[in-house]
Write a protein that binds this DNA or RNA. Structure first.
Lengths: 116, 116
DNA sequence: CCATCATATTCCGATAACGGTATGCGTCAA
DNA sequence: TTGACGCATACCGTTATCGGAATATGATGG
């Protein structure tokens, strides 16, 4: 039984990129593959910290690893970002229209006075 | 003194859309404003559940409220999605290129044998 | 003012996410 | 084999998140 509490969380790309540091990792990897230590150093995080974030990114398929001797080179696999881009693209027409709607909203606000 | 544990989390759009139910809410709101109860019902969640997700969405500016008599109509404000769309757009050129790189990766995999 | 409907908030328990430190494991060189 | 290096994992503490139920707040109608 036990309450379900907190449904599915990590383990999808949406969640993976919700973490600022993971976004930084992805951004850096656009410049090319890198070993863990380099990433950690460039982003100012501990090595275990980097490894853990990389694990998440690997599990959702946003990065891949390649053993290179003693090192493990992490590389970007951006394909997993595409579904997200498309999902958000479905709102593209709205983030202009939103301005218009906002007018009505603001007008209404003046009377209602429940703004935030 | 006191471990930092879990840095910034919620309170930005990336995190807001990391939640599946919140994505559903946003998707639904494209069809127009809705009172809380309607959302809860259409998405099969409890009223407090809906209210809580709406609160998060409101705090990051992805929805706005409008008092309509006894009800509160929630409407989409998609502008906050634009930065995300742009951030991901910065990877667009890579999710094709990734295929190519994948070849080298797979080849390497055959020798290294550390594939997951 | 009171009852009622719509919504927000609070309290709770369970969980998992993050950061840090310590440690384990694999690989390479000697 | 041993030691050093690179990286992954385990463990710990802290905090935040999510879901659920109960309750508080707000607005409307009578």
């Amino acid at each position: 039984m036990a309450a379900v509490a907190r449904a599915a969380t990590t383990s999808d790309a949406f969640n993976a990129i919700a973490e600022p540091q993971r976004r930084e990792i992805l951004a850096l990897l656009r410049a090319g593959e890198r070993p863990v230590t380099a990433l950690a150093q460039e982003l100012g995080m501990t090595q275990p910290g980097a490894s853990k974030h990389l694990r998440v990114l690997r599990e959702v398929g946003l990065v891949r690893v390649r053993g290179a001797g003693k090192q493990r080179l992490y590389g970007l696999d951006a394909r997993g970002l595409r579904p997200i881009h498309e999902w958000i693209g479905g709102f593209e027409q709205f983030w202009n229209e939103s301005f218009d709607r906002l007018d009505t909203y603001v007008q209404d606000l003046k009377q209602t006075r429940q703004g935030e």
